[in-house]
Simulated assay, not measured.
Amino acid sequence: MAWINILIFVSIGIVIGSCIARLTMRNNAQQKNLKKELKQSRYELEQYRQKFSDHFTQSAELLDNISRDYTKLYQRMAITSEELIPHLPEQDNPFVKRISELSDMTTGSEENTTQGPPRDYSDQATGLLKDATKTNKGD
């Protein structure tokens, strides 16, 4: 009788074990699928980020080229407007400001680039420091 009970319990254990194994294997398969999808999504996201970064890099280069070309065009228009219409009044010439900048650059004048003290600079001490220096000299 003991053998029959052992055999019954073992068969019941095998059935329960196989049911649990099937349930957990489904979860493992789902986990594997989810991990695979996650890796795929991360890879696609990284590709998207790289394309996005490349796009902005190329856009920045293009904008830089446009800026340089615009500056060259503006300089050319300023120079040619001065050459072709030399007696045009300043208020009628849209390139007056640029012409004066270009003439300063071409003549090499460094009047504006000299370094000196700011206009509001004072050689004498003022305020609290002035009073402190007087009291220290008197001591």
Results as ranks from 00 to 15, higher is better:
Trp3Lys: 08
Asn5Trp: 02
Ile8Ala: 14
Ser11Gly: 09
Gly13Pro: 01
Ile14Val: 06
Val15Pro: 01
Val15Asp: 04
Ile16Leu: 15
Ile20Phe: 06
Ile20Arg: 11
Arg22Gln: 04
Arg26Trp: 12
Ala29Lys: 12
Asn33Leu: 09
Lys36His: 11
Lys36Leu: 12
Lys36Asn: 12
Leu38Pro: 01
Lys39Gly: 05
Gln40Thr: 11
Gln40Asp: 11
Tyr43Gln: 12
Leu45His: 06
Leu45Lys: 13
Lys51Glu: 13
Ser59Glu: 15
Ala60Gln: 01
Glu61Thr: 14
Leu62Lys: 14
Asp64Pro: 03
Asp64Thr: 12
Asn65Ser: 10
Ile66Phe: 11
Ile66Gln: 05
Lys72Trp: 02
Ala78Arg: 07
Ile79Ala: 10
Ser81Trp: 02
Glu82Tyr: 12
Leu84Gln: 12
Ile85Arg: 15
His87Arg: 09
Leu88Val: 06
Glu90Arg: 13
Asp92Lys: 02
Asp92Asn: 06
Asn93Leu: 00
Pro94Met: 00
Arg98Asn: 11
Leu102Pro: 01
Leu102Asp: 04
Ser103Thr: 09
Met105Val: 05
Thr106Ile: 14
Thr107Val: 04
Asn112Cys: 04
Gly116Tyr: 03
Pro118Glu: 08
Pro118His: 09
Arg119Tyr: 00
Tyr121Ala: 03
Ser122Ala: 09
Asp123Leu: 12
Asp123Thr: 10
Thr133Trp: 01
Lys134Cys: 04
Thr135Cys: 05
Thr135Pro: 02
Asn136Ser: 08
Lys137Trp: 06
Lys137Cys: 06
Asp139Leu: 13
